[in-house]
Simulated assay, not measured.
Amino acid sequence: MIEAAMIWNEPNNKSHWDPELDPDWSRFASMAILAGDAIGLENPAITRILGGISPIDAGFMSLMKGFGVLDHVDAVGVHGFPLDWNLWQIHEWPQKLGEIAAVTDLPIWVSEAGVSSFGAEEVQLWGLRQTAELLRGNAPRVQWYSLYDLPHAWGATTRHREVEGSSYYRHFYMGLLREDGTPKPALEEFLLHTPEMGLVQWFHFEDHRLDDAVAWMKRLGVTNLRTGLSWADSFRPNALDWFDRQMEALAEFDVTVTFCFTPEHRGLQPHHTSPPQVPEEFAEFCASMIRRYAPAVHNAAMPARRVSAA
């Protein structure tokens, strides 16, 4: 069910990793190395990806290289949102990939690229078309964020919420489908770029949209999907029942699963962005999910799939 495992999400973004608790990212680096090794021991055919960085920062990638993290993964991820959150223009996509390529020879996955419809749905349509043209053939994976708008009642996973002004509210308009499930104009454009372009869709715990999402992705010709399994959610009652249901529903797709989010009671501070008290516990969570959903060939009827680095 899993072709690739991403170690954390946007580790250089304070919405996902607390730099006050780990100012030099040494704790993150140690945790990532442990997780990469644990995943590799469970199934060496799984592509291990350093969590997609946002912003795209060659300095941060150099830091990870210096800590030795890149020796324990098979690819690195980058996330770009030049029309919403980044301080660069959309036509600079090839340049941003080049900056990371200058630091590492590892394959560079564009594990999130997106444009919100916050200002106008026509902007998202134009941005999707431009993104596809600029990234086509330049990365082994390009995954669009996202299928659904974020429901307003849920709130975005970000540290500062409404004090971010319009930056916060853009989180709710990244989907090809509106919150009520109706298509935006960009959906028809996206259809022109599958299956080469994949999707990113995070599913909340017991997410009511799961079955509809699967139906939409099949209709759109999507073959690769990035989603997440939350370490924090693993402590909820019936967590494995939900994980099983989610992964079974997604079994027909090439899934990149992102392992992230610290349980409050296992962090240095009670927050999902906190470094864990015991980083080996995160590594064991990653290993346990690989054992459950992507066991090595000699333990499974179906072999795990791996994307070529080319």
Rank of each mutant, 00 (worst) to 15 (best):
D22W: 01
D149W: 01
T227F: 03
N9A: 11
E92Y: 09
L134Y: 10
F190W: 04
L210E: 10
F253V: 04
E164G: 00
D71Y: 08
Q130H: 11
A101D: 05
Y168I: 05
A301L: 11
V142H: 05
W8A: 00
S166E: 15
L199H: 02
R306E: 01
H271V: 14
R129G: 08
G198C: 05
Y168R: 09
I33K: 14
I108N: 06
E281Y: 04
S167D: 14
V103K: 03
A283W: 01
R306S: 11
S234L: 07
A249T: 10
S15I: 01
P303A: 05
V278C: 00
G228W: 05
E112T: 11
S117D: 11
A239L: 03
M302W: 04
D74S: 04
I100H: 12
V257N: 00
F205V: 03
L134R: 13
P55A: 02
G198P: 07
M289T: 10
A213P: 05
A29F: 03
M174W: 02
H171T: 05
S54F: 11
G165C: 07
V163S: 13
F28E: 03
P94S: 14
I290N: 00
D18A: 14
F172P: 07
Y169W: 15
E3Y: 12
D24I: 05
D57C: 04
D241G: 09
